[in-house]
């Protein structure tokens, strides 16, 4: 299982802040996981359309090619706006 987190406008668009998912066969990267979730359609397409979507694996910002394996914490979020 992987723990998936969503933040800010993406969290609101999806109507959920987190879920646990058994990684489907063939989904081994952050980009593949994003595509898998976006393919659920409707609100989930926000994962494909959010401008400059960012991702983190185990609380480190990564690119779409970063590997994802069971036990990881993966987060998707819009560009940050703190300070």
């Amino acid at each position: 299982m992987v723990k998936i987190l969503f933040f800010a406008g993406l969290r609101e668009a999806l109507g959920t802040g987190s879920e646990s998912l058994a990684l489907p066969a063939g989904v081994g990267s952050v980009g593949a996981l994003r595509d898998h979730l976006a393919a659920r359609g409707e609100a989930w397409s926000a994962l494909a359309t959010t401008k400059n979507l960012r991702a983190a694996v185990n609380q480190q910002v990564v690119g779409p090619d970063a590997p994802v394996k069971a036990g990881d914490e993966v987060a998707f979020f819009p560009p940050v706006t703190g300070g």
């Binding site: 933040f7 800010a8 406008g9 609101e12 400059n52 983190a56 987060a75 979020f77 819009p78 560009p79 940050v80 706006t81 703190g82 300070g83």
Partner: peptide, 18 residues
């Protein structure tokens, strides 16, 4: 740093763009 701001205005709420 992973912070996000949402502004409340009389027209509703808006997530601040980077």
């Amino acid at each position: 740093a992973p912070f996000w701001k949402k502004e409340e205005t009389p027209d509703g709420g808006h997530w601040v763009d980077a």
